[in-house]
Simulated scan of single mutants.
Amino acid sequence: MTLIVRDFRATDAEAAAEARRSAFPYLVTTPETVAWTVASAPPERQYRLLVAEADGQVVGSCATGVFHDSSEPGQAFAQTVVHADARGTGAGSALVSAAEERLAGLGAAKVSAWTLDEPRCVSFAERRGYRRGRSSRVQRLDLASAALPPLDPQSLPNGVELRTAADFADDPRPLYEADAECTEDEPGDVRFAGPPYAEWLALTWEHPALDRELTSVAVVDGAVAAYSVAHTDRRGRYWSGMTGTLRAFRGRGLAKLAKNDSLHRARAAGCVEAFTGNDGGNEPMLAVNKWFGYAPVATQWRYVRELAA
Protein backbone atom coordinates (compact mmCIF):
# COMPACT_ATOMS: atom_id res chain seq x y z
CA MET A 1 0.00 0.00 0.00
CA THR A 2 1.23 3.48 -0.90
CA LEU A 3 0.31 6.04 1.80
CA ILE A 4 0.91 9.78 1.49
CA VAL A 5 -0.17 12.85 3.47
CA ARG A 6 -0.94 15.97 1.46
CA ASP A 7 -3.06 19.12 1.49
CA PHE A 8 -6.79 18.90 0.92
CA ARG A 9 -8.12 19.57 -2.57
CA ALA A 10 -11.68 20.56 -3.42
CA THR A 11 -12.15 17.20 -5.16
CA ASP A 12 -11.46 15.44 -1.83
CA ALA A 13 -14.59 16.82 -0.16
CA GLU A 14 -16.83 13.79 -0.63
CA ALA A 15 -14.21 11.27 0.53
CA ALA A 16 -13.15 13.45 3.48
CA ALA A 17 -16.78 13.83 4.56
CA GLU A 18 -17.34 10.09 4.32
CA ALA A 19 -14.27 9.43 6.48
CA ARG A 20 -15.55 11.83 9.13
CA ARG A 21 -19.02 10.28 9.08
CA SER A 22 -17.44 6.84 9.50
CA ALA A 23 -15.34 7.94 12.47
CA PHE A 24 -17.93 10.24 14.09
CA PRO A 25 -21.34 9.17 12.74
CA TYR A 26 -23.28 11.50 15.02
CA LEU A 27 -21.80 14.70 13.60
CA VAL A 28 -23.43 16.75 10.86
CA THR A 29 -20.86 16.39 8.09
CA THR A 30 -21.35 17.03 4.38
CA PRO A 31 -18.92 17.63 1.52
CA GLU A 32 -20.14 21.23 1.51
CA THR A 33 -19.23 21.79 5.18
CA VAL A 34 -15.77 20.25 4.69
CA ALA A 35 -14.94 22.42 1.68
CA TRP A 36 -16.52 25.52 3.22
CA THR A 37 -14.49 25.20 6.42
CA VAL A 38 -11.27 25.13 4.45
CA ALA A 39 -12.25 28.05 2.22
CA SER A 40 -13.72 30.32 4.89
CA ALA A 41 -11.30 29.94 7.80
CA PRO A 42 -9.94 33.31 9.00
CA PRO A 43 -6.22 33.80 8.29
CA GLU A 44 -5.50 34.13 12.02
CA ARG A 45 -6.59 30.52 12.55
CA GLN A 46 -3.83 29.21 10.27
CA TYR A 47 -6.26 26.49 9.27
CA ARG A 48 -5.06 23.69 7.03
CA LEU A 49 -6.70 20.36 6.29
CA LEU A 50 -4.34 17.47 5.68
CA VAL A 51 -5.56 14.26 4.08
CA ALA A 52 -4.19 10.73 4.08
CA GLU A 53 -4.31 9.08 0.67
CA ALA A 54 -3.89 5.32 0.41
CA ASP A 55 -3.44 3.96 -3.10
CA GLY A 56 -5.13 7.02 -4.52
CA GLN A 57 -8.11 7.01 -2.11
CA VAL A 58 -8.59 9.55 0.68
CA VAL A 59 -9.05 7.53 3.87
CA GLY A 60 -8.64 10.17 6.57
CA SER A 61 -7.93 13.77 7.41
CA CYS A 62 -6.50 16.02 10.08
CA ALA A 63 -7.80 19.54 10.66
CA THR A 64 -4.96 21.70 11.96
CA GLY A 65 -4.71 25.28 13.13
CA VAL A 66 -4.41 27.57 16.14
CA PHE A 67 -7.01 28.81 18.61
CA HIS A 68 -6.59 32.43 17.62
CA ASP A 69 -9.59 33.44 19.74
CA SER A 70 -8.33 31.82 22.95
CA SER A 71 -7.27 33.90 25.93
CA GLU A 72 -4.16 31.69 26.25
CA PRO A 73 -1.67 32.07 23.37
CA GLY A 74 0.16 29.18 21.77
CA GLN A 75 -2.72 26.69 21.73
CA ALA A 76 -3.38 24.66 18.60
CA PHE A 77 -5.55 21.78 17.43
CA ALA A 78 -5.04 18.68 15.30
CA GLN A 79 -8.29 16.77 14.88
CA THR A 80 -7.60 13.46 13.14
CA VAL A 81 -10.18 11.11 11.66
CA VAL A 82 -9.61 7.85 9.79
CA HIS A 83 -12.26 5.86 7.99
CA ALA A 84 -13.21 2.72 9.92
CA ASP A 85 -12.08 0.55 7.01
CA ALA A 86 -8.59 2.09 7.06
CA ARG A 87 -7.76 1.80 10.75
CA GLY A 88 -4.49 0.06 11.51
CA THR A 89 -2.91 1.07 8.20
CA GLY A 90 -0.72 3.84 9.63
CA ALA A 91 -2.88 6.65 8.22
CA GLY A 92 -3.60 8.10 11.66
CA SER A 93 0.05 8.12 12.73
CA ALA A 94 1.12 9.73 9.47
CA LEU A 95 -1.50 12.46 9.79
CA VAL A 96 -0.68 13.26 13.43
CA SER A 97 3.07 13.40 12.75
CA ALA A 98 2.56 15.78 9.84
CA ALA A 99 0.16 17.93 11.87
CA GLU A 100 2.51 18.20 14.86
CA GLU A 101 5.42 19.14 12.63
CA ARG A 102 3.35 21.86 11.00
CA LEU A 103 2.03 23.27 14.29
CA ALA A 104 5.47 23.26 15.90
CA GLY A 105 6.65 25.29 12.92
CA LEU A 106 3.91 27.83 13.68
CA GLY A 107 5.26 28.21 17.22
CA ALA A 108 2.41 26.39 18.97
CA ALA A 109 3.14 25.30 22.54
CA LYS A 110 0.22 22.89 23.00
CA VAL A 111 -1.82 20.80 20.60
CA SER A 112 -5.16 19.26 21.48
CA ALA A 113 -7.58 16.83 19.90
CA TRP A 114 -10.84 15.10 20.77
CA THR A 115 -10.50 11.33 21.20
CA LEU A 116 -13.27 8.77 21.55
CA ASP A 117 -13.32 6.87 24.83
CA GLU A 118 -12.38 3.62 23.15
CA PRO A 119 -9.27 1.56 24.03
CA ARG A 120 -7.75 1.85 20.55
CA CYS A 121 -8.22 5.63 20.41
CA VAL A 122 -7.08 6.30 23.98
CA SER A 123 -3.95 4.16 23.69
CA PHE A 124 -3.08 5.84 20.38
CA ALA A 125 -3.19 9.28 22.01
CA GLU A 126 -1.36 8.30 25.16
CA ARG A 127 1.44 6.51 23.29
CA ARG A 128 2.14 9.78 21.52
CA GLY A 129 2.46 11.70 24.78
CA TYR A 130 -0.98 13.25 24.99
CA ARG A 131 -2.58 13.72 28.41
CA ARG A 132 -6.26 13.55 29.18
CA GLY A 133 -8.28 16.72 29.78
CA ARG A 134 -12.01 17.29 30.02
CA SER A 135 -14.68 14.99 28.70
CA SER A 136 -17.60 15.62 26.38
CA ARG A 137 -20.73 13.50 26.28
CA VAL A 138 -22.47 12.88 22.97
CA GLN A 139 -26.17 12.13 23.30
CA ARG A 140 -28.86 10.98 20.89
CA LEU A 141 -32.61 11.49 20.74
CA ASP A 142 -34.84 9.37 18.51
CA LEU A 143 -36.61 12.42 17.18
CA ALA A 144 -39.10 10.46 15.10
CA SER A 145 -40.66 8.85 18.17
CA ALA A 146 -39.62 11.13 21.04
CA ALA A 147 -42.35 12.28 23.41
CA LEU A 148 -41.53 15.96 23.18
CA PRO A 149 -43.41 18.32 25.49
CA PRO A 150 -46.33 19.87 23.59
CA LEU A 151 -45.98 23.35 22.16
CA ASP A 152 -48.59 25.81 23.38
CA PRO A 153 -47.89 29.44 22.51
CA GLN A 154 -50.73 30.47 24.83
CA SER A 155 -48.93 29.02 27.86
CA LEU A 156 -45.68 30.96 27.42
CA PRO A 157 -44.70 33.17 30.38
CA ASN A 158 -45.72 36.81 30.16
CA GLY A 159 -43.47 38.78 27.81
CA VAL A 160 -41.88 35.64 26.25
CA GLU A 161 -42.06 34.95 22.52
CA LEU A 162 -40.55 32.18 20.43
CA ARG A 163 -39.00 33.20 17.13
CA THR A 164 -36.50 31.71 14.70
CA ALA A 165 -33.12 32.87 13.52
CA ALA A 166 -34.73 33.57 10.16
CA ASP A 167 -36.68 36.37 11.84
CA PHE A 168 -33.34 38.12 12.44
CA ALA A 169 -32.16 37.95 8.83
CA ASP A 170 -32.19 41.73 8.44
CA ASP A 171 -30.18 42.30 11.61
CA PRO A 172 -28.59 39.25 13.27
CA ARG A 173 -26.51 41.34 15.70
CA PRO A 174 -28.77 40.53 18.71
CA LEU A 175 -28.06 36.84 18.09
CA TYR A 176 -24.35 37.57 17.80
CA GLU A 177 -24.33 39.39 21.13
CA ALA A 178 -26.16 36.51 22.81
CA ASP A 179 -23.86 33.91 21.29
CA ALA A 180 -20.73 35.86 22.26
CA GLU A 181 -21.80 36.05 25.91
CA CYS A 182 -22.81 32.39 26.14
CA THR A 183 -19.63 31.21 24.40
CA GLU A 184 -17.51 33.01 26.99
CA ASP A 185 -19.31 31.08 29.75
CA GLU A 186 -18.98 27.62 28.21
CA PRO A 187 -16.89 25.22 30.34
CA GLY A 188 -13.86 23.70 28.69
CA ASP A 189 -10.09 23.32 28.63
CA VAL A 190 -9.77 26.19 26.16
CA ARG A 191 -11.30 29.54 27.06
CA PHE A 192 -12.74 31.54 24.19
CA ALA A 193 -13.62 35.18 23.81
CA GLY A 194 -16.52 36.19 21.59
CA PRO A 195 -15.33 36.74 18.00
CA PRO A 196 -15.63 40.06 16.18
CA TYR A 197 -19.03 40.55 14.57
CA ALA A 198 -17.71 40.19 11.01
CA GLU A 199 -16.04 36.89 11.87
CA TRP A 200 -19.20 35.60 13.56
CA LEU A 201 -21.23 36.47 10.48
CA ALA A 202 -18.80 34.60 8.24
CA LEU A 203 -18.29 31.51 10.38
CA THR A 204 -21.52 31.09 12.34
CA TRP A 205 -24.32 32.93 10.53
CA GLU A 206 -23.20 31.77 7.08
CA HIS A 207 -22.30 28.21 8.10
CA PRO A 208 -23.73 25.89 5.40
CA ALA A 209 -25.19 23.47 7.97
CA LEU A 210 -27.04 26.19 9.90
CA ASP A 211 -30.80 25.94 9.48
CA ARG A 212 -32.19 29.33 10.44
CA GLU A 213 -35.80 28.14 10.22
CA LEU A 214 -35.10 25.42 12.79
CA THR A 215 -32.95 27.59 15.07
CA SER A 216 -35.24 28.87 17.82
CA VAL A 217 -34.89 32.05 19.85
CA ALA A 218 -36.66 32.92 23.10
CA VAL A 219 -37.31 36.66 23.29
CA VAL A 220 -38.32 38.42 26.53
CA ASP A 221 -39.95 41.82 26.16
CA GLY A 222 -38.28 42.16 22.78
CA ALA A 223 -34.77 41.17 23.91
CA VAL A 224 -33.01 37.94 22.96
CA ALA A 225 -32.84 35.83 26.11
CA ALA A 226 -32.06 32.25 24.97
CA TYR A 227 -31.53 30.32 21.77
CA SER A 228 -30.97 26.83 20.37
CA VAL A 229 -28.94 26.48 17.17
CA ALA A 230 -29.87 23.78 14.64
CA HIS A 231 -27.45 22.23 12.18
CA THR A 232 -28.76 19.66 9.70
CA ASP A 233 -27.21 17.48 7.02
CA ARG A 234 -30.28 16.95 4.80
CA ARG A 235 -30.06 13.23 5.65
CA GLY A 236 -32.45 13.41 8.59
CA ARG A 237 -29.75 14.22 11.14
CA TYR A 238 -29.97 17.24 13.46
CA TRP A 239 -27.13 18.55 15.65
CA SER A 240 -27.53 21.12 18.42
CA GLY A 241 -24.88 23.64 17.46
CA MET A 242 -25.30 25.58 20.71
CA THR A 243 -28.00 26.18 23.29
CA GLY A 244 -27.52 29.13 25.59
CA THR A 245 -29.21 31.61 27.89
CA LEU A 246 -27.93 35.08 28.61
CA ARG A 247 -26.83 35.61 32.21
CA ALA A 248 -29.67 37.99 33.07
CA PHE A 249 -32.30 35.41 32.08
CA ARG A 250 -30.93 32.17 33.52
CA GLY A 251 -32.95 29.96 35.83
CA ARG A 252 -36.26 30.60 34.07
CA GLY A 253 -36.43 27.55 31.78
CA LEU A 254 -35.92 29.57 28.61
CA ALA A 255 -33.30 27.22 27.17
CA LYS A 256 -35.82 24.38 27.45
CA LEU A 257 -38.44 26.46 25.67
CA ALA A 258 -36.10 27.34 22.82
CA LYS A 259 -34.77 23.80 22.43
CA ASN A 260 -38.24 22.26 22.55
CA ASP A 261 -39.41 24.62 19.84
CA SER A 262 -36.36 23.81 17.71
CA LEU A 263 -36.84 20.05 18.10
CA HIS A 264 -40.50 20.29 17.13
CA ARG A 265 -39.55 22.31 14.05
CA ALA A 266 -36.84 19.79 13.15
CA ARG A 267 -39.22 16.84 13.38
CA ALA A 268 -41.80 18.63 11.25
CA ALA A 269 -39.05 19.26 8.68
CA GLY A 270 -38.24 15.54 8.43
CA CYS A 271 -35.34 15.13 10.87
CA VAL A 272 -35.41 11.72 12.55
CA GLU A 273 -32.30 11.78 14.76
CA ALA A 274 -31.11 14.56 17.07
CA PHE A 275 -27.61 14.66 18.52
CA THR A 276 -25.90 16.99 20.94
CA GLY A 277 -22.60 17.22 22.79
CA ASN A 278 -21.98 18.68 26.23
CA ASP A 279 -18.92 19.23 28.36
CA GLY A 280 -18.86 16.60 31.10
CA GLY A 281 -19.09 19.35 33.71
CA ASN A 282 -21.97 21.23 32.12
CA GLU A 283 -24.57 19.90 34.54
CA PRO A 284 -27.37 22.35 33.56
CA MET A 285 -27.37 21.34 29.87
CA LEU A 286 -26.83 17.66 30.68
CA ALA A 287 -29.97 17.86 32.84
CA VAL A 288 -31.93 19.64 30.11
CA ASN A 289 -31.01 17.01 27.52
CA LYS A 290 -31.81 14.15 29.89
CA TRP A 291 -35.20 15.78 30.50
CA PHE A 292 -35.87 15.70 26.75
CA GLY A 293 -34.98 12.00 26.60
CA TYR A 294 -31.50 12.14 25.08
CA ALA A 295 -29.42 9.05 25.81
CA PRO A 296 -25.59 8.84 25.86
CA VAL A 297 -24.01 7.30 22.75
CA ALA A 298 -20.34 8.25 23.10
CA THR A 299 -17.82 9.92 25.36
CA GLN A 300 -14.95 11.98 24.02
CA TRP A 301 -11.86 13.19 25.85
CA ARG A 302 -9.81 16.22 24.98
CA TYR A 303 -6.19 15.13 24.88
CA VAL A 304 -3.37 17.67 25.02
CA ARG A 305 0.32 17.40 24.22
CA GLU A 306 3.05 19.89 25.08
CA LEU A 307 4.89 20.31 21.79
CA ALA A 308 7.93 21.76 23.53
CA ALA A 309 8.32 18.42 25.33
Rank of each mutant, 00 (worst) to 15 (best):
S71Q: 06
V82F: 08
V82K: 05
G105Y: 05
E100Q: 07
Q154K: 12
D69N: 12
T89C: 01
Q75Y: 10
P187K: 10
G92Y: 07
D85R: 15
C62P: 00
A98V: 08
A178C: 08
D185T: 12
D85T: 14
L175N: 08
V81G: 05
P187Q: 09
P150V: 11
A147D: 12
E72T: 14
P187N: 12
R127H: 15
D170E: 15
E161M: 12
A109Q: 13
A91Q: 10
A76Q: 01
D171K: 04
D167N: 03
S70D: 14
D171E: 08
R137S: 09
P153F: 13
L162A: 08
G107L: 01
A63G: 07
A169E: 13
G60D: 04
A125T: 10
A146E: 11
V122T: 12
P150F: 05
R173T: 13
S123C: 07
G107Y: 00
Q79S: 00
S70V: 02
R132W: 00
D142L: 01
V81P: 04
G92D: 06
G107F: 01
P119K: 13
A78Y: 04
P157V: 03
C182I: 13
W114F: 12
G105H: 03
V96W: 09
P174H: 05
E184Q: 08
T115L: 12
F124L: 07
G60I: 08
A86T: 01
A146P: 14
P149H: 09
V138P: 06
G92C: 11
E72Y: 04
S135G: 15
R127F: 07
G107T: 02
D179P: 08
P73K: 01
E177H: 01
Q154C: 01
R140P: 01
G188V: 03
A169R: 13
Q139Y: 01
A109I: 11
A125K: 08
T183D: 01
E118A: 15
V160W: 03
A108V: 00
E181C: 06
Q75H: 09
G105D: 07
E184W: 06
H83P: 01
R173E: 15
A169S: 15
S61T: 14
P172E: 02
D179Q: 14
R173N: 05
D117T: 10
R127G: 11
D179K: 11
V81M: 11
L141S: 12
T164L: 00
Y130G: 00
S97T: 15
L148C: 09
S70K: 03
S112H: 04
V81R: 13
T164H: 02
L116C: 02
C62T: 02
V66H: 10
A99T: 03
L156Y: 01
V160H: 09
R137D: 08
T115Q: 13
D85E: 14
A94N: 04
G105P: 11
L103H: 04
S61Q: 14
A84N: 09
L106F: 09
A63N: 09
P149F: 02
D179E: 15
V66L: 15
T164R: 06
V82N: 04
D185M: 07
L175K: 06
F67Y: 15
A108R: 02
S155W: 06
L95D: 03
P73D: 12
R102G: 08
R102D: 11
C62F: 00
F124I: 08
A91L: 10
S93F: 02
A113H: 04
L95M: 04
V81K: 11
L116S: 14
V96Y: 05
A84S: 15
C62H: 00
Q79V: 05
